[in-house]
């Protein structure tokens, strides 16, 4: 059993060896991640802390394993359908549209966005930025290759968002998958097309320590299923950052079961999972 003191020692060991600070992550789920880490590495907390202090590569691997990276193409399809019908059309008149995916994990969320933008004829005007705390996740995002058989649900989601629910009734679309990705059943892969992959600017970015590292504000910030791992204090800090990084009338998109609590929520109008920055 991992005690609270063990978790504190682990957090301290990481702080001493790097800039990462997990002090304000949600306690219960973080503790469980530490337990899992110890089991998977066959170590106790002392051995783990020692290795973290000596081995940078190991430390990066620990950061990857301690964070939760689950994601999907068009995860939570209702959100994407709302985006398609209600949010993106409002931005279409803009000359350029700045989009930030914060906590992009292995990139499925970014490619979902790019595909949708392309279908709506908004691909050229979009400037897409993506960040994550973990460099390995950024590498997988850039590669844009996913397992095929394990992820058949991606295709269902694609159908729901892209093929079904058309914008108007004349439109009956059969969008072939190959327009956006190649499926190789032998290699068991789905690989995103190059024109999508090269569209994105990737940067390593830690929501705990870093501010807006791009010389721009944003029309859309997506940060889904990231702040559930943060406590209230850190959540507020991050929402504040997004508030400052959005254009007026820009939207913050959170995960299906996330919301803004506390005073910062007054800066936004909420419809479904979309938070629109108010005019003041």
């Amino acid at each position: 059993m991992v005690t609270n003191e063990d978790v504190q020692r682990f957090i301290t060991a990481i702080k001493m060896a790097s800039t990462y600070d997990f002090s304000d992550y949600s306690e219960r789920s973080f503790k469980r991640r530490v337990e899992k880490l110890l089991i998977d590495n066959h170590m106790d907390i002392n051995q783990l802390s020692l290795k973290i202090s000596k081995d940078k590569f190991f430390l990066e691997k620990v950061v990857r394993d301690i964070t939760v990276n689950t994601t999907e193409l068009f995860r939570d399809s209702d959100m994407w359908i709302t985006l398609k019908h209600q949010i993106l059309p409002k931005l279409k008149k803009n000359k350029s549209i700045f989009i930030w995916h914060a906590g992009c994990s292995s990139g499925q969320e970014i490619y979902s966005m790019l595909i949708l933008l392309h279908e709506l004829g908004m691909f050229e005007q979009a400037k897409v930025f993506a960040t994550d705390i973990n460099s390995e996740m950024l590498e997988s995002s850039k590669a844009g290759v996913y397992k095929y058989r394990f992820n058949l649900g991606y295709l269902d989601n694609f159908d729901k968002v892209i093929k079904e629910n058309p914008l108007n009734f004349e439109e009956t679309k059969d969008v072939p998958y190959e327009k956006y990705f190649d499926i190789d059943k032998v290699k068991d892969t789905i690989k995103m097309k190059e024109f999508l992959r090269e569209k994105v600017v990737f940067r390593k970015h830690d929501l705990v320590n870093d501010g807006n590292i791009f010389y721009s504000k944003f029309d859309l910030v997506l940060c889904r299923n990231v702040i559930i791992y943060f406590n209230n204090k850190l959540q507020n800090h991050v929402i504040e950052l997004f508030n400052n990084s959005l254009y007026r009338d820009g939207y913050l998109v959170l995960g299906a079961h996330e919301s803004i609590l506390g005073p910062v929520s007054n800066n936004f109008d909420r419809t479904k999972g979309f938070y629109k920055k108010k005019q003041f």
Binding site: S26, E27, R28, V68, I228, Y229
Partner: peptide, 21 residues
């Protein structure tokens, strides 16, 4: 508990959700 999320009870009487394995 919402579909596809783990639901923890956090000290201070709040829920925390997670999508880990």
């Amino acid at each position: 508990a919402p579909a596809n999320y783990h639901m923890y009870v956090e000290l201070g009487n709040r829920f925390t959700l997670s999508t880990e394995d």
